[in-house]
């Protein structure tokens, strides 16, 4: 249930750690797994201790900065969702990955499990980058 102002974990290596949802695209409802949202990067990720030691300077590899407005795809939700076979899956956190406007992921690797509803929503690029899906 991702909606306006929801803080979502970002699990790719684009440089964002925590993003805030500002819009759920093409819907009046909350976003679920596989839905596209627009986010504002709230917190940046520090890669490695050497970059953290640089007096708050963030790594060059960060593709996004704090305050950037980006598109993202929800990959995990705390809200449980039911599959066609009757099984129900829920995760312990809300997570998303950043994508560009064309729908390609900005990050090059993801760390974390993603929901397999992405396959139904045709996000196969995200699925192929993810380490595992449930």
């Amino acid at each position: 249930m991702i909606q306006l102002k929801t803080l979502v974990n970002c699990i790719d290596n684009s440089g964002a750690a925590i993003v805030e949802c500002v819009k759920v695209m093409r819907m009046k409802r909350h976003a679920r797994i596989g839905d596209r949202i627009i986010v504002v990067v709230q917190k940046q990720r520090n890669f490695g201790p050497e970059s953290a030691g640089g007096g708050g300077a963030v790594s060059i590899s960060n593709k996004v900065r704090r305050g950037d407005i980006r598109h993202a795809v929800v990959v995990r939700t705390v809200k449980k969702y039911q599959r066609a076979d009757g099984s129900v899956v829920k995760f312990d956190d809300n997570a998303c990955v950043l994508v560009n406007k064309g729908g390609d992921p900005i990050g090059t690797r993801f760390n974390g499990v993603v929901g397999s509803e992405l396959r139904d929503k045709k996000w196969s690029k995200i699925l192929s980058l993810a380490p595992m899906h449930v």
């Binding site: 995990r76 449980k80 076979d85 009757g86 099984s87 129900v88 899956v89 829920k90 995760f91 312990d92 956190d93 997570a95 760390n111 974390g112 499990v113 380490p131 595992m132 449930v134």
Partner: peptide, 17 residues
Amino acid sequence: QLTRVGVEMWVKLFSPN
């Protein structure tokens, strides 16, 4: 837990899957 994220799943006992 999968990749250090808690996951809960309801599984139907007699599901053919």
